[in-house]
Amino acid sequence: MTEAARFRAVGKRFGAVQALRGLDLGIAAGETLALLGRNGAGKSTTIALLLGLDRPDDGEVELFGGVPEAAVRAGRVGAMLQEGQPVPRATVKELVSFVASTYPRPLPWREALELAGIGELAERRADRLSGGQAQRLRFALAVAGGPELLVLDEPTAALDVEARRAFWRSMRAYAGRGNTVLFSTHYLEEADGNADRIVVLDQGRTVADGTGEAIKRAVGATLVAFDLAGGSTRGLRGLPGVLALEVRGDRAVLRSSDSDATVLALAAAGLVRGLSVTPASLEDAFLTLTAHDSAGADARTDASAGAGTGAGTGTGATPDPAQSYEEAAR
């Protein structure tokens, strides 16, 4: 399998912050890869290094077998960066056809606009677009040159649900032409639904790498929960099948690799009040993978630690896991 890009033991530091710590990552040609992580996990740094916008302090980054700058100058890469606003006094068509003209094998500008779903906005001034339209223009600019590798840094931030759905259709259409796509997101459903492979970054290193299914399997497929009713959590961690313990409110949530054995052990101990058994969501897998070592196992038995972890990934975007267990318990 050919490789589009390769990170070898890449480290990057910004002042006191170690953004990447020995990142190893390969991107196969033709695959769609999601970089998943919370804010500050190292996603944007990874993308900046991949595009040659910044240089690693340690290790090396290779893009199409050479330095990233060379691949960018050769027109093999297109990117949608974070926080770009359209420049004023130019039309959508002017900007897209200009960017296309800098590439050796561009798409016709009309095709780029249609792929981005803004075919009817060609003559509109770029600074008079709505937020969602501007986002689509940035996508059109990224694909205008017909790049082999398309890089999208949190492309759906600030888009509403409908616009987000349309956006992913456009992305998949471009990927479907045999191109390689790398996108970053902190939305799990987006990574799961639109990527062939998910790489979970946390604190500057890879904590999981595989399909959404594989990641769920790797961290334990089932959650067993029950009401503590003021009881102690002592000994729960040692029950058969239990991989991890978390307390949410007054409920103990056990991540189990063998839920039958766990439930039998709990029943033997009489701990069955409000018992529920649910498959772990990708969200749960993510929380487990990115639970910081510094928090420690003991801290995670504390209710506030669990709540804090949930808040860190944007609870507005995904259902609150604690809430779904309550529903399951009724």
Partner: peptide
Amino acid sequence: WLRQLRVTP
């Protein structure tokens, strides 16, 4: 925009 231009050829 200058940063966007940096990721073009």
